[in-house]
Amino acid sequence: MSRRGALVAMVAAFAAVSWGIKEAVEASLAGGRVVDLGIVQLRLLRNSGISFSMGAGLPAWVILAVTGLITLVVAVFGWRGAPTLPVLGLVGVSGILAGALTNLADRAIDGAVTDYLHTGWFATFNVPDSLITLGVVALAIAFLLQPDTPAETKD
């Protein structure tokens, strides 16, 4: 399988798992039910804004357009970089893209992102948000671990 094929496969797998978890949580928490898991609670919240509910007062089409554009930029970066990204970087980009696509689809369908992991001391978030965060960390580590290559010079 090509590296671009691996990117597409990982994005599809991560997104499918994320969407499945969202659907299961929504079904389990219907009617305002809360499940205490210790460090987090499962509690439904609809976020019409972006991270930390910023921009919640903006028209839905603006949020959808901005997040769609950002997702497109990540997709282009991932597609173009896939042949040369280290494996950890490829996994990271896949996580970022899968999380972004899942949240984008949720927003396009429901007008808001479904959040359900509630800590009480931090923002309520979801699995796609976690994929984005862990993907950024993986990508950063991949770039930090790359051996230094001398810059090309023109004579």
Rank of each mutant, 00 (worst) to 15 (best):
M1Q: 13
R4L: 11
G5D: 04
G5F: 06
L7R: 05
V8K: 02
A9G: 06
M10R: 12
V11R: 00
F14P: 01
F14V: 05
K22N: 12
E23A: 15
S28H: 11
S28Y: 08
L29W: 04
V35H: 14
V35Y: 14
I39M: 14
I39K: 14
V40G: 03
Q41R: 15
L42D: 05
L44Y: 09
R46K: 07
N47H: 05
S48I: 08
I50R: 06
S51D: 11
S53C: 11
M54G: 12
G55L: 05
P59F: 10
P59E: 08
P59R: 11
A60Q: 10
W61L: 08
W61V: 10
I63T: 05
L64P: 10
L64A: 15
L64F: 15
A65K: 10
V66F: 14
G68S: 07
I70S: 07
I70Y: 09
I70V: 15
T71V: 12
L72N: 08
V73L: 08
V73Q: 05
A75L: 08
V76A: 11
V76K: 05
F77V: 14
W79H: 00
A82S: 07
L85H: 07
V87P: 08
V87G: 10
V87E: 12
L88S: 09
G89M: 06
V91Q: 02
G92I: 03
V93N: 00
S94H: 03
I96Q: 03
I96H: 00
G99K: 00
A100W: 02
L101E: 01
T102F: 04
T102Y: 02
T102D: 07
A108C: 04
V113W: 01
V113P: 03
T114P: 01
Y116G: 03
H118Y: 15
W121F: 14
W121I: 12
A123F: 12
T124W: 05
F125A: 02
F125N: 02
F125P: 02
P128A: 07
P128I: 00
P128C: 07
D129N: 04
S130K: 06
L131S: 01
L131N: 02
T133A: 09
V136Q: 05
A138S: 07
A138K: 03
L139N: 00
L139E: 00
L139W: 03
L139I: 04
I141G: 01
I141D: 04
L144P: 03
L144C: 12
L145Y: 12
T149W: 12
P150M: 15
A151G: 08
E152L: 14
E152R: 14
T153G: 09
T153R: 14
T153W: 09
